[in-house]
Write a protein that binds this DNA or RNA. Structure first.
Lengths: 227, 227
DNA sequence: CCGTATCCAATAAGATACTG
DNA sequence: CAGTATCTTATTGGATACGG
């Protein structure tokens, strides 16, 4: 190890190497991902990052904060709870999350049956929307994952995603209510729509779930070798 | 631990998490980066990844090979040397490298004076080319970094980059010969062109080094806090 | 040289218990 | 609930030795 630097450095001027020093530690990018759609509490993050331990989450948040990617705030009373939020620069890391996700979706070893967070599935919509299929659609959709609510607007072949307030759902064409993993199984796994509850315009919902296309799996000469 | 196998899992169906399981280990993405422009030998990799130890490089290469991102080949006699090359899927990870590099270039703590590999600087040209500035230019450039040679073709606002054979340099408008770090200092650090040797059309070379634009640094309220 | 293997010390991650 | 503290395990890096 070299002298001087406090932590392990790649000692490389390449931006990629510096990026890995900023968000290359285990869990760091997933923590940042969970903050992409707005502030979360410590417990929310812990719940949506199955397997992370409290001390590692504490450490990652502290590092991300110190590097300027995350800010810690205390909500005004009566809430008075502490939340973590991504800074603008932190949110600018979304293309990294997307590129990684799009690339890894081609993996023959990707297991889509694992748990998935609400933020993940919503961000995947931004990543995987097929502009041709979405062209001509103009609709709003709501998503209820337990306490968390999100809203998506499909228009001009694109999709906008955000956390939802109560009133936002009144303008939605349809609202999906269920587990994120179930929604993922429907959209990406070809499962039937009635795996979750759908309120509102069911035909709009049926169209919505066809808008997203995973890239083709990598051809593997000997797939067994990768099992 | 079981080398390369499903070790510590993120237990997350999100493609991003799976991507981190594939190339999230320390050094993995940088090893893959070094293979983006063609096969390299073990010693080349070791030389261009300052700080990696031989055992870690061996392990990363074995893992990447087992996951289908890298192949190990033996060149035909008389060379008969073993080389590592990225598979097509491995090369498809370049958008990840680019997104990470572009994002990290905004970091206030990025130190461009560190060493940099030839592959890194050439890839950075692909990432950072400013289409508006390159528009209307049609030229070829050669790069000599010790034993390694590369060629770049600028055309229609884009740039193509590849390893060069001997003959390729005859068609070049200009050839840069020097250390990658010096070229980086010229292109990105505003240093004078005569820091390295330039053969051929010097005015074309002078235009070339203006084609690349780093994104603006992140505004930091208290930059000292991040030192 | 080109890698691999092995040993060791330093870190980082994981599990769990604990405190305000 | 929101973290700390502590302990155990895993990974990393450096040195070095070894076989092709």
């Amino acid at each position: 190890m070299r002298s001087g630097e406090a932590k392990r450095s790649y000692d490389d001027a390449c931006g990629t190497a510096h990026g890995l020093e900023l968000i290359g530690e285990r869990w760091a990018l997933l923590v940042l991902r969970e903050l992409m759609l707005g502030p979360r509490r410590f417990g929310d993050l812990r719940a949506d990052l199955p397997g992370i331990s409290a001390n590692v989450l504490t450490q990652r948040l502290a590092e991300l904060e110190q590097r300027g990617l995350v800010v810690r705030r205390r909500l005004p009373p009566p809430a008075s709870v502490q939340v973590y939020d991504a800074t603008e620069w932190g949110r600018e890391a979304e293309p990294i999350v997307q590129a990684l996700g799009r690339w890894a979706a081609r993996s023959p070893r990707h297991d889509p049956t694992l748990p998935i967070s609400g933020v993940s599935i919503l961000l995947s919509f931004r990543t995987m929307i097929d502009a041709k299929r979405a062209k001509g659609m103009d609709a709003r959709f709501g998503f209820v994952f337990g306490q968390d609510r999100y809203i998506a607007r499909v228009r001009k072949g694109g999709i906008k995603v955000a956390r939802a307030g109560e009133g936002d759902f009144h303008r939605c064409d349809a609202v999906f209510d269920g587990a994120p993993a179930a929604l993922a199984a429907i959209v990406y796994g070809g499962q039937p729509l009635d795996l979750i509850e759908v309120r509102g315009d069911r035909s709009a919902a049926a169209r919505f779930i066809t808008l997203f296309q995973l890239p083709p799996k990598v051809a593997v000469e000997d797939a067994a070798a990768l099992a």
